[in-house]
Design a protein around this nucleic acid. Structure first.
Lengths: 143, 143
DNA sequence: CAACTTATTGATAATGATTATCAATATCAA
DNA sequence: TTGATATTGATAATCATTATCAATAAGTTG
């Protein structure tokens, strides 16, 4: 299954916090890492169930929250009432474009936009720590 | 109370859709318009209650949804689990900056960023119809 | 290895914002 | 004035997420 680096990050986090390991959490991490895209908790629950049918959904919630805390995962609130999760470790920062017709979600970045955000924040006297940018519209296929 | 223009917009919308007027909705619109900032449904409910103590919260939900449909109001999902509402009519487009310490919410815009978003979307083959940009960090007072 | 402390798990109850339902009432056109 | 129908307010339903809790597993210490 590999993913040694990611497991090492999780293990380091557990050690730092004095927490314990568990087979369930390892299974969830593997399923999370091998699944590309922007998962919902329910999506991941279904996937992990194939390997461990008795896993509870509360455990998925708990694990994803922990993965976010140790930098393996990023939370994504697109305004559809569900939190989505994507890989963070080893992935450059990016924003998102969602198609209003087919609901496709695509990653997008522009370093120039990032730079201007910094500049705007500075101009207003703020210390920028992060941002959320979602572009809405019609994708190539739907427009 | 004035706000003639905004009431005219609402009335036109009602006429177009074959809907009826109501004193409650007019009260809600006045309360909405006279309140600056980024209101939550509950905020507005409290305010309207001062004039009409028997107004139900469901009516506030319904009215705000309608105000959004006719362009008087904009919905704002900041990821804190509640939808916030702000004036849209007569207000230039703007994005938001939220302070992670004091939760202050401030409006911000940069026409250059807007332009680059258009460009980025075009480059990816998308037709841009809107965007959501929230900057997170520490404000002048908290940093 | 055994005993003990404590984190984890899975089931399920609780939460909380929003939506749907419904009978009573208000609006508006004929 | 009447009839059709939109609106209202109360409240039940929904649904994603969180909290609770007893049972179990992990890891530490003697």
């Amino acid at each position: 299954m590999a993913f040694e680096k990611e497991h090492k990050i999780l293990d380091g986090y557990l050690r730092d916090k004095g927490l314990k390991q568990s087979a369930q959490r390892r299974d969830i991490l593997n399923a999370f890492l091998k699944t590309e895209g922007h998962m919902t908790v329910e999506d991941l629950h279904k996937i992990v169930k194939r390997k461990n049918p008795s896993i509870g959904i509360a455990t998925i919630y708990r694990a994803l929250k922990m993965f976010c805390e140790c930098g393996l995962c990023r939370e994504l609130r697109l305004g559809d009432g569900m939190i989505r999760y994507e890989h963070k470790y080893g992935h450059a920062h990016h924003d998102h474009f969602t198609c209003l017709k087919c609901n496709k979600l695509i990653e997008a970045t522009d370093p120039e936009i990032e730079r201007l955000q910094e500049k705007l924040a500075r101009k207003m006297g703020f210390k920028l720590q992060g941002h959320l940018l979602i572009l809405y519209g019609l994708c190539r296929e739907c427009k």
